[in-house]
Design a protein around this nucleic acid. Structure first.
Lengths: 338, 338
DNA sequence: CTGAAAGCGCTTACAG
DNA sequence: CTGAAAGCGCTTACAG
């Protein structure tokens, strides 16, 4: 229609330059008038290329939680593999040294997309700053670093999930209740990590602050990494009505409560670890808050596929729904429909 | 490698016949040894065809609920439109006559895939039986007709959702509670429909039966289509502690309760209609059970895309997760990450 | 700055 | 029963 060849039209559509202003205008006018949609099949067949993505996550050493996003990623790998998406995995041990070492390695390699979880805050900022120079799409899952722009995030709203935990704790409370906030840490844990669990605790307190009509609550906040060794804890638990564990290690308290045959304690925690589900099923844990880590992994890859293969824009922030899991509905949440 | 042309290989791969047994075996052996994956881009470019899908649902006449699957379908239409999926819509009025009329129309047209909601049980069985003769992939959403084989289903487990409702009602109950099961019907409603709400009620009762340790419950079950006109109801509600509405019209009770300023009544219902969410936010409705109707629509189209475009198998039954919605988590469930 | 041409891998109508 | 060839729509190296 413009009396130019397909080569020229292609140069205009993809802004590859080397065309006269005149032709650019003629062709764009025609496109505007008649529309043009790239044929994905033809385009990708001609490109005949692979899209290489690096997945950079903590190693699954006794960290059952990190299996979940990997499952979602594997699912996505299969689905998008058909479209030329290739995924390489890089795992770091749960310490900053290992993180930095592997991060350097990932940076050196030329990937077209990156999916990663910023477990260590400061190190992640450094890493992301370097990555951004390469101008490739990057997706963070699990926790967000809001300060860095232009990086997509798919994960939880930690504050709101703590707020929700407050609500769940408040069901069936007595006129006065003693609430324990138990921060169960890992023995090896360092401090320099993202502040997810702090945000959860903050949200938790906010719930009670903003709902002043509720009965009186007394809060106790302690950190531990091992309830079993501390026999004074039994005594303490006798005065407790509710326990909030702001991470996935809620099964440790549940075990303690079950072993010591403590009754009538409401427990709210996070994540569908095997052990947590067992205690949920047992009736020891009352609620688990679930933020679909498999789906985070799946959606992360899907986001990169959209950018790389379809050359489309994609949501830059996706908050996962805050799912409330009780004994009666967990089986249907597990069989995720990815 | 087999010293045959691509045409012959193609005939073997697609079982198009007209090849000697000998060649079939040679080529299959080579494929087995070296593997072969169809290049989707090349295949669909060469096929150069559109995949036409009929969507057959109730008309959205004051049925806000049915907007949700349509939103999901629209999302899918956009996403899979790029791959040649075309969707036509057929809506029937919420009565069997209209259903049959439109069903005939849909049957006459030649679609390659069908998405539909079997609202009227018997008429749907007739329709499905006819459809199956065409040997096209069919997906049901919303409610299932298990008797018909070879038809995919994406939707709720109605029984289990009622069971869950029982659990939700049971939070914070007194030593003796009066529970009202309110079947709010539409004035025009016929009886010949799928039995979703009956299954929900059944599941609801089961919860209390199977958890005999619970306090005493007294159940009252009534049907109505308009609480506002019945002034005797106020009196009745004064003796009620909990209300279970096994469908999306829970906002009608909520309105009644709010207008009559009745206090301390726990309400559990279904579906994220605008009005339901308002009452959830108000604190009148305590829990809504949500089974992601948008996602049902989206997944329905996605299922057909997998079958038609990718020529893959797809799950034949997908139960949606039973999501528990409270005031504190609903906003994140609405912004569905389709 | 532009066009003609080859090629991506698969499908299919056609001639033999 | 088989093969050669055209064509799907786009991309790109190359010649001019």
């Amino acid at each position: 229609m413009a009396n130019v060849s397909v080569g020229t039209v292609d140069r205009i559509i993809h802004n590859r330059g080397q065309v006269t202003m005149e032709n650019i205008e003629i062709v764009n006018a025609i496109i505007k008038k008649y529309g043009y949609k790239r044929n994905i099949y033809a385009s990708n067949l001609a490109l005949n290329k692979k899209f290489r993505i690096a997945v950079f996550l903590p190693k699954n050493e006794g960290l059952e939680y990190w299996l979940a996003p990997l499952n979602g990623i594997a699912k996505a790998a299969e689905e998008f593999g058909k479209f030329g998406v290739l995924i390489d995995y890089y795992f770091y041990k749960y310490d900053t040294e290992s993180f930095k070492k592997i991060a350097d390695k990932v940076l050196k390699l030329d990937y077209e997309g990156l999916l990663f979880a910023p477990v260590f805050y400061e190190e992640s900022v450094v890493f992301l700053t370097e990555c951004k120079k390469k101008n490739i799409p990057i997706v963070m899952i699990d926790s967000n670093i809001q300060e860095i722009e232009g990086v997509a995030y798919i994960g939880q709203d930690a504050y709101q999930s703590g707020y929700l935990a407050g609500k769940l704790i408040s069901y069936g409370i007595k006129s006065e209740s003693n609430i324990l906030i138990l921060k169960i840490t890992r023995e090896t844990e360092r401090t320099s990590k993202t502040t997810v669990y702090l945000q959860r605790i903050q949200g938790f307190y906010s719930y009670f602050k903003e709902n002043a009509f509720l009965p009186v609550f007394n809060f106790t906040e302690i950190s531990t990494h091992d309830t079993s060794r501390n026999h004074l804890m039994v005594k303490m638990f006798l005065a407790i009505d509710c326990v909030f564990v702001p991470n996935s290690r809620v099964h440790i308290v549940a075990k303690f409560i079950k072993e010591n045959n403590l009754q009538g304690i409401r427990i709210v925690g996070y994540d569908l670890l095997k052990q947590n589900l067992d205690y949920l099923n047992d009736g020891i844990i009352d609620f688990l808050i679930h933020q679909k880590p498999e789906e985070q992994g799946y959606l992360g890859i899907s986001h990169l596929y959209k950018k790389l293969v379809l050359k489309e824009e994609a949501e830059s922030i996706t908050y996962m729904p805050l799912e409330i899991l009780v004994k009666e509905n967990y089986s249907y949440s597990q069989q995720s429909k990815l």
